[in-house]
Design a protein around this nucleic acid. Structure first.
Lengths: 199, 199
DNA sequence: GTTATGGTATAACGGTCGTTATGCAAAGTA
DNA sequence: TACTTTGCATAACGACCGTTATACCATAAC
C-alpha cells in the first residue's frame, strides 16, 4: 500500500519531530520507527544508520528552509525589506512545519561533541552549511542595499536571527520575531548608505 | 588527602566541562568520574544520581552567573550602563569560567524533552529560574532607566542576550558581545524616556 | 586501639541502545 | 505464473548505560 517514497517521508517526519522535541541521543530508533508506523528493519533498509537518518533530516530541513527564504525574498520589494525577509521566512517556515522546537542545526550542534577541527563529520558539515547560507546571504543583501558597512549590518542581523531561534527555545521574550524585525529595521535605517557610484 | 569538599568540586568541574562540551546524554557517569580522577562509587556517594549531579552543576552555574552580573552591575554608573551590564557579565563570566561551549541552561533545555506543563522536574525549574532572573532584572533595570516602554526595551535586550549565547554556539558572528552591546545601546538611546514624575 | 571518615576496586544487576540476520507476506509487473 | 519490490515480525548480538552491593584501604581523631 504505502509506496517507498511515502515510507521514507514518514520516517523523516517522525525523526524530525522526535529528535528536536525530545533530543537526538535520548530518542531511540525504535521510537522513531514506531512513530512512523513502520518496522525498525525498514528504517535501516532506507537509511542504514541513525546518523544517516539524522543527516537526511537535516538536509531536508535545510532545503525547506532555503525554499521558504527564497519565497520571502521574492515577496520583498525594497532592499531593506529583502534584508528583513529572514524574519518573514522564520514565520512562514514555522507556520508550515508545525513549529518544531527551535533550530534543528543549533540543537544538533549543542548535543554533539564538536569534532577535531570539524574534520570529516557530515552532520557538522550540514550545520556549517546552514551557517554559511544565512551569513552569506545576509552579507550579500547588505551589499545589495548599499550599506556602507555591509559586514557589520549583516553581523547584527545574524545576531538577531540567532536571538530569535534561542528565544523560541527559552520561551521568552514572547513573539521574538516581531521584536527582532523592529530592532533590525532600526539597525538598517540607522546604517549609513554608500553613494551608488556607477561602475 | 583530598577533602570531601575538594572531591565534590572536582566532580562538578568535570561534569560541567563534559556535559556542555560533549552533550549531557552522551556523557556517561564513568567519563565524569574519570575526568575528576575519582571512582564512580564516590560520585554516587556525593550526588546520588546523574540527574542530581546535573542539577547541582546548573545551580552552581546559576549562582556564579548571578555573582558576575552583580559585579558588572555594581561597576556600572549610568542607568543605560546598568542595562548594558548583562553583556559585560557575559564577558567576565566567560573569561573566568573557561568559556564552556555556550549557555548551559539553553543547552539542557534543548536536550531534554519538555515535561508536561513543566511540572515537577527540578532541572527545568532551574532553567526557568535562569530565565526569570534575566528577564526580571532587565525589566527592573529598564524601569529604573525610566524607559517609556520598559517591557519592550527589556524584551529587545533579552533577545540580544539570547542571540549572543546562540552565536557562541554557532561560531558566527564572531565577537557577538560587541555587536550586541552596540545594538542594545542604540535601542536604549532611541527609546523615549518617561518624564521623571515625582511621587 | 578503636572508630569514623572519605575514598578505592571489583563485580554485578537490569535495562536500553544501535545494528543485523533470518524468514515470511503482500503487491505490482512482466 | 514467476519475479522483484517493499515491508513485516521475531530474535538475537554486543556494547554501554545508570545504579548498587560488597569488601577493602587510608587517614586522623578520640
Amino acid at each position: 500500500m504505502a509506496s517507498a517514497q511515502n515510507t521514507r517521508e514518514r520516517l523523516l517526519d517522525a525523526a524530525e519531530g522526535l529528535f528536536f522535541q525530545e533530543g537526538i541521543a535520548v530518542t531511540g530508533v525504535d521510537r522513531v520507527a514506531e512513530a512512523a508506523g513502520v518496522a525498525i528493519v525498514t528504517l535501516y533498509k532506507h537509511f542504514g544508520s541513525k546518523d544517516n537518518l539524522l543527516r537526511e533530516v537535516l538536509a531536508r530541513r535545510l532545503a525547506a528552509w532555503t525554499r521558504h527564504w527564497d519565497a520571502a525574498l521574492a515577496a520583498a520589494t525594497t532592499p531593506g525589506g529583502r534584508l528583513l525577509s529572514v524574519f518573514d521566512a522564520i514565520e512562514s517556515f514555522r507556520a508550515a512545519a508545525g513549529a518544531t522546537q527551535w533550530c534543528c542545526f543549533l540543537a544538533t550542534a549543542s548535543e554533539r561533541a564538536v569534532p577535531d577541527a570539524g574534520a570529516g563529520d557530515p552532520v557538522f558539515a550540514l550545520i556549517r552549511q546552514d551557517t554559511r547560507l544565512v551569513a552569506g546571504r545576509l552579507g550579500d543583501l547588505a551589499r545589495e542595499a548599499l550599506c556602507a558597512d555591509p559586514d557589520g549590518v549583516a553581523a547584527s542581523i545574524l545576531l538577531l536571527y540567532n536571538g530569535v531561534l534561542s528565544s523560541l527555545l527559552r520561551g521568552e521574550p514572547a513573539d521574538p520575531v516581531a521584536h527582532a524585525r523592529a530592532v533590525a529595521r532600526s539597525v538598517i535605517d540607522a546604517s549609513p548608505r554608500e553613494p551608488a557610484s556607477g561602475a
